[in-house]
């Protein structure tokens, strides 16, 4: 049997559900059967991935409890085997998976998972310079047309049909999450990092759109368009939002 065939066989045994029938591959003998030896690895594979998901999604775990989280993790790992060399990325599809497979009684759980994932990604995002308030002075009537704001790599914008922040806060503070009142209105959140600390906050729909435009490299006039619905107030609101991004260390640099 070639090395390729051996590894294909082992993979099916260790990761898939294939029973260990063809033991011609493995040495027999000792206190354990080939099945038992394979199961040592199969169990380790599962426990390692489950534990990573448990630590990555502590809030989802708190909502589901150990037993239901175990079921979710098993289904998820089967549906989305790891494609990245780092376990840091194992949970990247869990919010989408939960959205496609809603949990009875907590259909909003995908939003909580997305918030957790965004926060963990912000925590490990690449280091970046942070623009100071003085950098805003570069934006003058002459440079405004071409000015761009590069956001720091930690910034993430999330859009949810409900506001999961009360549940997040309750769990983070060790309170019963069922008593937290889930916000019933659609909510946009921005996740960002200051130093090593990760924050999230609600932003208006317009500001969320402006952040997305800035993230995608839009110029200042295009970013301001996100506030067009405010009429004459559009420009002041845009500049107020941009100033707050700078204050909260969300802007890496201002380019003119």
């Amino acid at each position: 049997m070639s090395l390729q065939a051996q590894q294909a066989q082992l993979w099916d045994w260790l990761v898939g559900d294939a029973p260990v029938r063809d033991t011609a591959v493995l040495v027999k003998g000792g206190a354990l059967s080939p099945d038992e030896r394979v199961n040592v690895y199969a169990e380790m594979y599962w426990l390692r991935l489950r534990d990573v998901l448990r630590s990555e999604f502590e809030q989802v775990l708190a909502v589901l409890g150990d037993e239901d989280f175990e079921v979710l993790a098993a289904k998820y790992v089967k549906a989305q085997p790891s494609t990245h060399f780092s376990l840091n990325w194992l949970g990247q599809h869990l919010p989408t998976f939960l959205r496609a497979n809603p949990v009875e009684g907590a259909p909003w759980l995908w939003a909580l998972a997305e918030l957790e994932w965004a926060r963990s990604q912000a925590f490990i995002a690449e280091a970046s310079p942070v623009a100071t308030a003085e950098a805003l002075g570069l934006v003058t009537p002459e440079t405004a047309e071409t000015a761009r704001f590069t956001l720091t790599p930690s910034v993430r914008v999330l859009r949810h049909p409900v506001d999961v922040r009360p549940v997040f806060r309750a769990i983070a503070e060790g309170q019963p999450w069922r008593e937290a009142r889930l916000g019933a209105t659609p909510t946009a959140l921005v996740v960002f990092r200051q130093g090593f600390a990760v924050f999230h906050d609600a932003v208006s729909d317009a500001e969320a759109q402006a952040l997305e435009l800035a993230r995608d490299g839009a110029t200042l006039p295009a970013v301001c368009e996100a506030f067009a619905a405010f009429g004459d107030e559009a420009a002041p609101r845009a500049f107020q939002a941009i100033a707050s991004w700078v204050n909260e260390a969300m802007v890496a640099r201002v380019e003119v």
């Binding site: 993979w11 690895y41 991935l49 790891s82």
Partner: peptide
């Protein structure tokens, strides 16, 4: 294998 990592 198959583009997937076992992390083991």
């Amino acid at each position: 294998a198959h583009g997937h990592y076992s992390h083991d």
